[in-house]
């Protein structure tokens, strides 16, 4: 039943993501040619921002799961940790990729090593990559889970730092266009609507993905248990 629910979420999210792409190309207005070096490339933003949003949700899930495992030894917490790292890696890579391509079009360079937001988000994605590869290469056990949970707990400090980076240091990455506080958002209403549809769709999509990932981890543990009991019984 839960597997079916996850697949429904995944399908709804996918439909919404494709609708966002269509609306971003055919319905949202073009930006002023005076405001951007590469106005056409600005439409990358309709997937770039929602995938970054989804990555933050995934890193939040990773933090909660890490804490639940580390402090409570919760098997459910470990499944959250695994699902959060996989979703964080996928969404993080999509965000970094689209950001690099947009940077190449707009700034003339895909990366700026002096920009805080770019580098903290890049580190978060590398952390997710380390956790995914590390978990696959190490035998599962309490010590392994403790080590990776510690990285998940301490690594989370990069999330608020990344979120606040463009509010504190305006270096290269554009400032906030929604939820901008006193300065106000600069986004036209139809652009904001497409962006919101994108954010909602990416949220549904990664929640579906994380539910399936948690189920896989549970089944892997059950398979290991059954195989161990079979070996023990023989």
């Amino acid at each position: 039943m839960r597997g079916r629910f996850a697949e429904v979420l995944l399908g709804a999210g996918f439909f919404g993501i494709m609708a966002t792409l269509y609306l971003g190309f055919h319905w949202a207005p073009s930006v002023s040619i005076n405001a951007f070096e590469s106005p056409a490339a600005q439409r990358i933003f309709y997937w770039h921002v929602p995938s970054a949003w989804a990555a933050f949700i995934a890193f939040g899930v990773l933090f909660v799961g890490s804490a639940m495992w580390f402090f409570k030894r919760s098997a459910f917490g470990w499944r959250l940790h695994v699902a959060g790292t996989e979703a964080g890696l996928a969404c993080g890579l999509m965000t970094v990729w689209s950001g690099c391509v947009w940077g190449a079009a707009e700034w003339g360079t895909p990366w700026d090593w002096t920009d805080v937001r770019l580098n903290t988000f890049g580190l978060l994605t590398l952390l997710a990559l380390f956790l995914v590869l590390g978990r696959q290469s190490q035998p599962d056990g309490v010590e392994t889970r403790d080590t990776f949970s510690t990285f998940g707990l301490y690594g989370f400090v990069l999330v608020p730092l990344t979120y606040m980076a463009t509010r504190i240091w305006q270096i290269r990455h554009p400032g906030p266009v929604v939820a901008a506080g006193d300065s106000g958002g600069s986004l036209e209403s139809s652009m904001a609507l497409v962006l919101m549809i994108g954010a909602l769709s990416f949220t549904l999509f990664i929640v579906g993905h994380m539910l399936i990932s948690m189920r896989i981890t549970q089944l892997e543990q059950r398979l290991e248990q059954v195989q161990n009991s079979l070996d023990g019984g023989i």
């Binding site: 106005p39 490339a41 689209s98 391509v101 079009a105």
Partner: peptide
């Protein structure tokens, strides 16, 4: 710009 846009979305 369209080239960059296509590259980003295909990726």
């Amino acid at each position: 710009g369209s080239y960059y846009l296509t590259t980003a979305y295909l990726g």
